[in-house]
């Protein structure tokens, strides 16, 4: 387990850069993590992040389809907000574990 100082706080991250403990996440931290992924964070990003964090807190499986049905973004917009690998990027920025879903 590695330590990393982001946005003036020291957090534990795993070897892939995901936060070990989702409760250590703050909005400022999210903005910094987004920057590392080359994303300028907007309110829309935070809405998606809130949705993801809620879903993970409830212990539900996170899929791209679920984000697409969230009412916040459709799947196309999700890909635009987090270009490349949206679910992996969005979860990393949200401070939750890497999703294990294949869909």
């Amino acid at each position: 387990m590695a330590q990393k100082t982001i946005a003036n706080v020291t957090v534990s991250i795993n070897e892939e850069g995901y936060l070990e403990n989702m409760s250590e996440w703050t909005k400022e931290l999210g903005s910094e993590l987004a920057k590392e992924e080359g994303i300028d964070i907007t309110d829309k990003h935070f809405e998606v992040i809130d949705f993801i964090r809620n879903k993970v807190e409830k212990g539900e499986t996170l899929t791209i389809r679920a984000v697409g049905k969230s009412g916040i973004v459709n799947i196309k917009e999700f890909y635009q907000l987090f270009p490349g690998a949206p679910l992996k990027k969005a979860t990393k920025i949200s401070g939750v574990p890497k999703p294990t879903s294949c869909i």
Partner: peptide
Amino acid sequence: DLDIPPVDEFLEMITAGG
């Protein structure tokens, strides 16, 4: 039950991502 979409929606998901 596993949140696997029907075929038509699956195709949309694929094209939505490019």
